[in-house]
Amino acid sequence: MSIAVIYGGNRPNGNVETLTKLATQGLMIEEIYLKDCVIQPIIDKRHAEEGFSDVSDDYNAVIDRILPHDILIFSTPIYWYSMTGAMKNFIDRWSQTLRDPNYPDFKASMSSKKAYVIAVGGDEPYIK
């Protein structure tokens, strides 16, 4: 069993990173910090005749790091009732990878993984 943690937070040692480290304490994990990566937003060409264009950024390197793992933990603070933009850009790009001939087994590989989300918000939710 191998685990990759994908951190979507932008603040070093923030609440979600602290909670994630507590939850994974004693486990062998690979940590991936999206804040240290350049991942461009998707330009949706799913229906374009020419298909997706190659993008020169760190996205494929991150995909190559997570694919060998059995378990993925997505760790993100909640910003405006959702995941961070960095995490959203990363997940949005999966649409491109599903059609990338360099990753012919991407869908099958990702569907065989267990995935967990650790999310932290701080807007006094008990008042709402």
Score class of each variant (00 low, 15 high):
residue 32 I to T: 02
residue 87 M to W: 07
residue 84 T to C: 12
residue 65 R to V: 02
residue 63 I to T: 02
residue 125 P to G: 09
residue 71 I to W: 04
residue 59 Y to G: 00
residue 123 D to K: 12
residue 70 D to S: 10
residue 123 D to M: 06
residue 17 E to Q: 13
residue 27 L to Y: 11
residue 82 S to F: 06
residue 110 M to C: 11
residue 20 T to W: 01
residue 1 M to G: 13
residue 45 K to C: 08
residue 75 S to E: 01
residue 11 R to T: 14
residue 73 I to L: 10
residue 119 A to R: 05
residue 69 H to N: 10
residue 80 W to G: 05
residue 67 L to C: 06
residue 121 G to E: 03
residue 102 N to S: 13
residue 104 P to W: 04
residue 89 N to G: 06
residue 108 A to H: 09
residue 56 S to E: 15
residue 1 M to I: 10
residue 68 P to S: 07
residue 121 G to P: 03
residue 20 T to S: 14
residue 107 K to I: 11
residue 64 D to M: 04
residue 91 I to F: 06
residue 90 F to Q: 01
residue 23 A to N: 13
residue 121 G to A: 10
residue 79 Y to N: 10
residue 34 L to I: 04
residue 46 R to L: 14
residue 112 S to D: 14
residue 118 I to F: 12
residue 12 P to L: 06
residue 83 M to C: 08
residue 107 K to N: 09
residue 15 N to F: 11
residue 104 P to H: 05
residue 101 P to F: 07
residue 17 E to H: 08
residue 115 A to D: 01
residue 114 K to W: 04
residue 119 A to C: 11
residue 85 G to P: 03
residue 110 M to E: 12
residue 51 G to S: 07
residue 110 M to L: 14
residue 105 D to K: 12
residue 96 Q to V: 11
residue 91 I to E: 02
residue 17 E to A: 08
residue 12 P to T: 10
residue 38 V to Y: 13
residue 55 V to T: 09
residue 35 K to F: 10
residue 85 G to W: 03
residue 65 R to L: 11
residue 79 Y to Q: 05
residue 64 D to G: 03
residue 48 A to S: 13
residue 108 A to D: 10
residue 26 G to Y: 03
residue 33 Y to M: 09
residue 70 D to L: 07
residue 53 S to A: 12
residue 21 K to R: 15
residue 98 L to N: 14
residue 113 K to W: 09
residue 56 S to N: 15
residue 59 Y to M: 05
residue 10 N to D: 08
residue 58 D to Y: 04
residue 119 A to H: 06
residue 90 F to G: 00
residue 17 E to Y: 05
residue 9 G to V: 03
residue 16 V to M: 03
residue 19 L to T: 08
residue 83 M to I: 14
residue 55 V to C: 08
residue 15 N to W: 06
residue 95 S to H: 11
residue 112 S to P: 04
residue 59 Y to N: 00
residue 76 T to H: 00
residue 40 Q to R: 15
residue 23 A to E: 13
residue 122 G to V: 06
residue 81 Y to F: 15
residue 62 V to N: 00
residue 59 Y to E: 01
residue 20 T to C: 09
residue 69 H to G: 04
residue 17 E to V: 08
residue 9 G to I: 02
residue 49 E to H: 06
residue 110 M to G: 09
residue 84 T to K: 09
residue 119 A to W: 07
residue 5 V to C: 12
residue 79 Y to K: 04
residue 72 L to Q: 06
residue 70 D to N: 14
residue 119 A to M: 14
residue 62 V to W: 03
residue 36 D to I: 06
residue 94 W to Y: 13
residue 116 Y to S: 02
residue 63 I to Y: 00
residue 15 N to E: 12
residue 90 F to V: 01
residue 112 S to G: 14
residue 85 G to V: 08
residue 51 G to Y: 08
residue 41 P to A: 10
